[in-house]
Simulated scan of single mutants.
Amino acid sequence: MSLIRLLPIALILAGCSQQAQDTVAREAARNAITPVIQDKFPGIPVEPAVNCVVDNANSTQIGALALDAVTGPTQSTVEIVTQIVSKPETLTCLTDEGLPALLR
């Protein structure tokens, strides 16, 4: 990964509070998660699924996914998203949030 590509993100985050940094990282992570959900889990409503993945990811996973948003999804992105989707709390979220979206 090129340091030149990461520099703008690092500069933006350096001037932000911890809460703002978390918000920026979560939004960036969404950009990496979305194509994985669309490709690996067809038929699942994308927005609720992405929300469930982001809400159930730990900070390390969010950081890795945010970086993947800069370079584009990789096999590592797929593995991280799959790990998060496999968590019981994510599956519960998908049932509670994704299933109703399918039925609308």
Rank of each mutant, 00 (worst) to 15 (best):
M1R: 14
M1L: 11
M1Q: 12
M1N: 12
S2W: 06
S2F: 09
S2M: 03
S2Q: 09
L3E: 13
I4M: 10
R5Q: 12
R5N: 12
I9T: 10
I9C: 04
A10M: 14
L13E: 08
A14L: 14
G15W: 02
G15Y: 05
S17V: 00
Q18R: 10
Q19E: 08
Q19F: 04
A20E: 10
A20K: 02
Q21N: 07
Q21H: 04
Q21Y: 06
D22K: 13
T23E: 01
T23R: 00
A25G: 04
R26W: 02
R26Y: 00
E27K: 06
A29M: 04
A32K: 08
I33M: 03
I33Q: 00
T34Q: 13
P35I: 01
V36P: 08
I37A: 05
I37Q: 07
Q38F: 02
D39V: 00
D39Y: 05
F41S: 07
F41K: 11
P42V: 00
I44F: 13
I44P: 06
P45T: 05
V46W: 00
E47W: 01
A49R: 01
A49W: 04
V50E: 00
C52V: 07
V53W: 09
D55F: 03
A57E: 05
N58Y: 08
N58G: 14
N58K: 05
N58P: 10
T60P: 01
T60H: 10
Q61T: 05
Q61F: 07
I62S: 09
A64V: 09
A64Q: 08
L65K: 01
L67E: 12
L67M: 13
D68T: 08
A69V: 04
V70P: 15
T74K: 03
T77D: 08
T77Q: 06
T77E: 10
V78D: 13
V78E: 13
E79R: 10
E79F: 09
I80C: 05
V81S: 11
Q83R: 14
Q83M: 04
V85I: 15
S86K: 04
P88Y: 01
E89S: 12
L91R: 14
L94D: 12
T95M: 15
T95N: 07
D96Y: 13
E97N: 11
E97C: 12
E97T: 11
G98K: 04
G98R: 03
G98V: 03
G98I: 07
L99E: 13
L99D: 12
P100H: 05
P100F: 05
P100I: 11
R104D: 06
R104M: 04
